[in-house]
Design a protein around this nucleic acid. Structure first.
Length: 429
RNA sequence: GGACAGGUGGCCGAGUGGUUUAAGGCACACGCUUGGAAAGCGUGCGUGGUGUAACAGCCACCGCGGGUUCGAAUCCCGCCCUGUCCGCCA
């Protein structure tokens, strides 16, 4: 949600931000609505002030036992214009909100131009791709060969885009999440583990910008709850409608949760395997920071997500998204893409965004600065660290052996009872 | 799901139609006091909008949304949330 005062002060900067989002300029149009809105407010408030003064006089007159009929007639004469003025002011105010609440956040200056993912810019590449002495399989071939990744049974129970994991793979998914949470909640990680609700109300979904734009991407229960599409939603809303103290910032939260996405409009995209599911596990990071802290906090968060991949010995690259490829709430987004030899491609495994005060405005999340008066909106940041299902895929594909077995990365072994290798299909015969 | 009791500023809390123009306290800031601190005393201190060069001023906000009234924190209706008890339940 944008601040109309910012648009008033610097309409050119606002339109430049929209341009980077590949949107047409809107400042002039919005300011025209704002102008009419403010005029209506002034008029309406003037009438209200008059009524208030007269009503007070009526009260005083009655208190002294004097007649008040003349005063009451005077107020009655105001009534019609007063109602009309109030309605007009409310209507224009609502119109401005309707226009503003669907607009995406403005990208930072350093965000590259572009209309789609081809405009994204790689900023670093870490780890080396393994040289296979055989042709690497993808995760579907590997998982189905042992029966431990079972799409057919999942389809009988729940339909497409679900999976049943069994035995070693079920355990590995749990192990991956444990490793991630331990890294994030360590002294160096600095995050506080949270176990949040997975069903949320409209207000919470609105607060992070999921509503009103993305209603169809979420699952909705028949008694009015939304299933969270990401733990960003409840974690960010932990500070909604509150005033924090500057000394307590930044706040850092992490959670391991399932995420639910209806994936409306994604038909035909990534239909093979576990890449895109209706339900998937994810470890999420959220930071609540001051405006001065948020840029550095964004780098730090991205670094913590990368740290997981370093721990697991998975090659990856980090890119900065261009204006046309970012999510609406973000001012800047880093994506981390892991190398998948079975697909011969880098695939997204994390997305870390600095949302500035965009979500904070919608949630009324503020803090009291040490210096100066009043309150300011906090900055909110969120990032996956990491998508657990995709991490599982990456391990299978990168650590596979020729016989279909999979070596367990060193860092994961303590979480899997010391298991060093997940047996291949031969062991299941 | 049912019954009852509640929801007031960052926090606690008074307030059942008209000097409430939201008392009082805590916390916080500044000052006085002090060798230094605590205590004490004094002053300031809600949010949003509008307005202004900046102040001032003005409007709204007492869980949310409607309504009654010249006037609503206060009365009426609907909803949300919290607590307690009952029912059900992993």
């Amino acid at each position: 949600m944008h601040d109309i005062r910012f648009i008033r002060e610097d309409p050119a900067a606002f339109d430049a931000g929209l341009k980077k989002r590949n949107l047409v300029p809107l400042a002039a149009e919005l300011l025209e609505i704002d102008k009419r809105r403010r005029a209506a407010i002034s008029e309406s408030e003037g009438a209200q002030a008059k009524r208030k003064a007269l009503s007070r006089q009526i009260g005083m007159a009655k208190g002294k036992g004097e007649p008040a009929e003349a005063l009451m007639a005077e107020v009655a004469a105001l009534e019609e214009n007063l109602k009309k003025g109030e309605a007009l002011a409310a209507e224009l105010d609502a119109e401005l909100v309707r226009r503003l609440e669907v607009l995406p956040n403005l990208p930072f200056d350093e965000v590259p131009e572009g209309t789609d993912e081809t405009g994204n810019v790689e900023i670093r590449r870490v780890g080396s791709q393994r040289n296979f002495s055989f042709t690497p399989k993808d995760h579907v071939a590997l998982g189905e060969a042992t029966g431990e990744m079972d799409f057919a049974t999942a389809a009988k129970i729940s339909g497409s885009r679900f999976v049943v994991l069994r035995k070693h793979l079920a355990r590995m998914e749990r192990a991956i999440a444990q490793l991630m949470l331990d890294l994030h909640t360590s002294e160096e990680g600095g995050y506080t583990e949270i176990n949040p609700p997975l069903l949320v109300r409209d207000d919470a979904a609105y607060g992070v910008g999921q509503l009103p734009r993305f209603a169809e991407d979420m699952f909705h229960t028949d008694n009015g709850y939304w299933l969270i599409p990401t733990a960003e939603l409840p974690l960010t809303n932990l500070v909604r409608e509150s005033v924090l103290e500057e000394k307590d910032l930044p706040l850092r939260f992490t959670a391991f949760t399932p995420c639910f996405r209806s994936e409306a409009g994604a038909a035909g995209k990534d239909t093979r395997g576990m890449i895109r599911q209706h339900q998937f596990p994810k470890v999420e990071l959220v930071s609540i920071a001051t405006p001065e802290q948020s840029a550095a906090e964004h780098e730090r968060m991205t670094g913590r997500a990368e740290e997981v991949l370093r721990n697991l010995g998975l090659p990856f690259r980090t890119i900065v998204l261009c204006g046309g490829d970012m999510g609406p709430a973000a001012r800047k987004t880093f994506d981390i893409e892991v190398w998948l030899p079975g697909q011969n491609a880098y695939r997204e495994i994390s997305s870390c965004s600095n949302c500035g005060e965009f979500q904070a405005r919608r949630m009324a999340a503020r803090y009291r600065p040490k210096e100066g008066k009043g309150t300011r909106f906090v900055h909110t940041l969120n990032g996956s660290a990491l998508a657990v299902g995709r991490t599982l895929i990456a391990i299978l594909e990168n650590y596979q052996n020729e016989d279909g077995s999979v070596t367990v990365p060193e860092a994961l072994r303590p979480y899997m009872g010391g298991l060093a290798v997940i047996p291949g299909p031969a062991a299941h015969k």
